[in-house]
Amino acid sequence: MISFFIKRLLLLIPVFLAVSLVIFMIVHLVPGDPIDNLVQINSSPEQKAALAAKYGLDKPLYQQYAIWLGNALTGDLGDAIILRRPVSDLIAQNLPHSLTLGALALLFSTVVGIAAGALAAIYKDSWIDRVTMALILLGSTVPGFWLGLLLIMLFAVQLGWFPVSGARSWDALVLPVLTIGLGGVALVARVTRVAMMETARKDFVMMLHAKGVPPWRIELRHVLRHALLPVVTILSLRIGWILGGAVTVEFVFARPGLGSLLITSLNQRDYPVVQGALLMLAVAVMLGTLLGDIVQAAMDPRVRERIE
């Protein structure tokens, strides 16, 4: 297990290098002089020269990348052009909000998704199954930001149960988590339902029925346990996708967070912040995927063998 963990971690290094290279290149691919994309407005020529020296802008591109990456790894992501503060400060301020939201949304998707999928499989073709299937279709086809806006209209504007926006109190988390969660629940429920129905057809389940084990016990102790493997697989594949939902939802609810920071700075062309936020989001997706893989490997020795 430990050698699996180390190998999986080492595999992340080339991925991180490739992604950070693309993010580094943003400033150089955007039309115009890179220095103008990095420097604060109204900077004096001396300040520009100092920044150019810091990033080694007269050196070849691969050396510039090494300098930039070295700075980034020590927490120096440059200064924001519009907000005039170190990018690392902005990230430190926004990251906790995104982590809370992402973690809660993931937890909600997993728990509610497995429960809904299991109920739909156990009560196949009943109204529970049909309602779940309809919710699955809605959850995988309705744009997340629209769902968020509808929830705001109903629960915040009309009923006044939750705040419209912001992150001042815990109840401001309810609607954002629900918004990201519905997509995640749809994904998890669909896989759980299919996996349980496939497992229920296996010989050992028939055997349990023949032995006279109570049906609820078969479903919960045996069928669901088997069905959890594909659920964990799909979760580890799509964890980044659920975290990506947070980007949209933060913006809709005007919550602080990496997603809001990224969208705002993209609109303002504040490139140091764009680079910093993208780098952090990419790392979050990579670590999330790693977490999913570890859980999967802990559950299924075949996965460990494949990579070891």
Partner: peptide, 14 residues
Amino acid sequence: SFPEILIALILIAI
């Protein structure tokens, strides 16, 4: 492993 929205945002940044 990266969500489409993140890839799209990186490209829009460029």
